[in-house]
């Protein structure tokens, strides 16, 4: 009897099966299957309205309050279907952090942007809070830029710095997964490069799902790329292969700029 030792495959973080998403009568996601690996960067690309953001926001249930929103199927995460009605969204969102298109730091000091979520999740010790501010700002490469002005408003930072602060804020509560919804689309090329660099560093510790309009960005940072089109996943494969040798005609048309 041969027992097959599990090969060193990378574990799956999310297993999506038969996912359908509706806004009222309109179907935004049409029966997709998708497997997302742990500690990899998965890029979701596709033209506007293709459903990639809808999918992303369904993972941490940010669409729950949208009128008419309805999701069917499975988004399996650690043996839990995230679409179950009785899921604790507070615990879920602590586990699965999110960063948005436009930097949205709280209108408070730089330090408070980190300490407030920590306090919210029960950390009271002054020493620990101060320590966490430094740790998390270092993690996003912001510490040296702001160490002398931690008490100034987060709005005094540049757009790129604000976005890195938002990433630090998302990381400070120790999520396993980071969802990023076009995090660099409002930033200039230098700030974008910094964010991309940061993501490459972070993927050792986090599972990252990145929605982007920028194909070069997907090619630069993502391990695998999923191409969404009209609510379906046309192709999901290794990034290099996707851009050099796509299997599907529609993928090829999209990356060569023939539509979208």
């Amino acid at each position: 009897m041969v027992t097959v030792a599990l090969p060193e495959t990378i574990e799956t973080a999310f297993d999506v099966q038969g996912l359908n998403i509706f806004y009222g009568a309109k179907q935004a996601i049409n029966d997709i299957d998708l497997s997302i690996k742990k500690h990899e960067i998965t890029a979701l690309i596709g033209p506007s309205g293709c459903g990639k953001s809808t999918f992303l926001r369904s993972i941490n249930r940010m669409n729950d309050d949208v009128p008419g929103f309805r999701a069917e199927g499975l988004i399996q995460y650690d043996d839990i279907n995230l679409l179950t009605d009785n899921i604790d969204t507070v615990a879920l969102r602590k586990e699965i952090g999110m960063v948005f298109q436009n930097p949205n730091p709280f209108p408070k000091s730089i330090a408070k942007n980190i300490t407030q979520p920590l306090k919210e999740h029960g950390i009271r010790s002054k020493r620990k809070l101060t320590e966490q501010v430094e740790t998390n700002l270092r993690r996003v490469g912001l510490w040296d830029e702001v160490r002398d002005r931690l008490d100034t408003s987060a709005y005094s930072l540049s757009g790129g710095q604000q976005q890195r602060l938002c990433i630090a804020r998302a990381l400070c509560i120790h999520p396993e997964v980071l969802l990023l919804d076009e995090p660099a689309s409002a930033l200039d090329p230098i700030a974008t490069a910094k964010i991309e660099d940061l993501l490459l560093h972070l993927k050792d510790h986090y599972t990252i799902i990145l929605v982007t309009h920028n194909l070069q960005q997907a090619a630069r940072v993502a391990d695998s790329t999923a191409f969404f089109y009209q609510g379906e996943v046309v192709e999901h494969t290794d990034t290099e292969q996707f851009f050099s040798n796509p299997k599907e005609k529609r993928s090829e048309d999209y990356i060569s700029g023939r539509f979208g």
Binding site: N60, M62, T89, V90, A91, L92, R93, K94, G97, M98, F100, N102, N104, P105, F106, P107, K108, Q116, P117, E120, H121, C166, R169, A170, I173
Partner: peptide
């Protein structure tokens, strides 16, 4: 801005805590 509310919710704040710590101060 709705983005402020989203920031709070995405950090695992409850609706009530999002109101008191994010929306009302703003």
């Amino acid at each position: 801005s709705p983005q402020q509310k989203e920031a709070g919710l995405a950090l695992g704040y409850t609706h009530w805590r999002t109101i008191t710590t994010v929306l009302l101060p703003s």
